[in-house]
């Protein structure tokens, strides 16, 4: 039973990340390929505050979320004048840059590659409590995101994607909207990072490589671009499905590669047959 709750918690964490990524990739049309950077930053920031300064974990996660938002904006600012594929490439490069930063500067516990020893409050201490707390946070994030995309800000975001000239002619700057949404998505991803660290008890830099960023692309690509429902559907379907594979009795060494190959095939299939994903409202423009 504990394992089911653990999986549920993981799904909730990835839903938050997917919702955040969909805000920038789907709704705003920015080709972001570095979500793992902010996930990792949030996870490391929350864990460090808790382990080394004794900050209550919820407070630590909140601070980590805000800090991730700032880091996200800081990393975006120099990249703002890039367009299309060049922007995608630069964000892709961020994965490698931050991997080395996490690996070389991130604190580690003696004798391991990573960090553990978070002291969790009661609401995150057992798998059951953890699931319901994370679920509550995920639901809040989903409601906030759903309201955001329906608000005037949400309309403006879609306008920066579809009709940037129209925005300009109204005297509004697409760039300002890009910065705001990037910061919001960074903060949400950082929040998810904090919860992710609490779920796993142990974090190390290999969790936050380009593979994690690609994973997010798979989730929202399959679920659906520019769709909150799609951002929920993607992680739920894919994580449940790969877990179900476990019961086929395959040797455990094959599980990783099978999952990887499946995700690869899904990416190809989605790009050929249904570029907006299962319930998406938009497809990749380029």
């Amino acid at each position: 039973m504990d394992h089911i709750f653990f999986l549920g918690t993981l799904i909730c964490v990835w839903i938050i990340v997917s919702v955040a990524a969909n805000l920038v990739i789907g709704y705003t049309g920015m080709l972001a390929m570095g979500q793992a950077v902010y996930l990792g930053f949030g996870a490391y920031a929350a864990s460090c505050l808790n382990i080394f300064l004794g900050v209550n974990y919820f407070v630590a996660v909140a601070i980590a979320a805000v800090a991730s938002g700032f880091v996200a904006v800081l990393t975006l600012l120099p990249l703002l004048r890039l367009e299309g594929m060049y922007f995608a490439l630069a964000t892709l490069g961020l994965n490698f840059v931050f991997f080395d930063l996490f690996r070389n500067l991130g604190p580690r516990v003696e004798g391991s590659e990573g960090l553990y020893g978070i002291i969790l409050p009661a609401a995150l201490a057992t798998p059951t409590a953890q699931f319901f707390t994370t679920l509550a946070v995920a639901v809040l994030c989903i409601i906030a995101a759903a309201r955001l995309v329906k608000s005037p800000l949400g309309r403006a975001l879609r306008a920066t994607r579809d009709r940037p000239d129209a925005l300009l002619s109204l005297g509004k700057s697409p760039t300002a909207y890009h910065i705001v949404i990037w910061g919001v998505a960074g903060a949400l991803t950082g929040l998810a990072g904090g919860l992710y660290a609490a779920t796993l008890f142990y974090i190390d830099p290999t969790l936050f490589t380009i593979n994690a960023s690609i994973l997010v692309l798979v989730y929202i690509g399959v679920g659906g671009l520019a769709s909150i429902g799609g951002s929920i559907l993607g992680p739920v379907l894919l994580i449940t499905f790969t877990e179900a594979l476990r019961y086929l009795g395959l040797p455990s060494t094959l599980m990783g590669p099978i999952q990887q190959a499946l995700y690869g095939a899904l990416l190809i299939g989605v790009m050929i047959f249904r570029r907006k994903g299962l319930v998406g409202t938009h497809d990749f423009q380029e």
Partner: peptide, 17 residues
Amino acid sequence: GGGLFSVFIASLGVSLI
């Protein structure tokens, strides 16, 4: 009708497999 980015994503899929 897939463009540069869609082909790039599909290409990532090929390398994953």
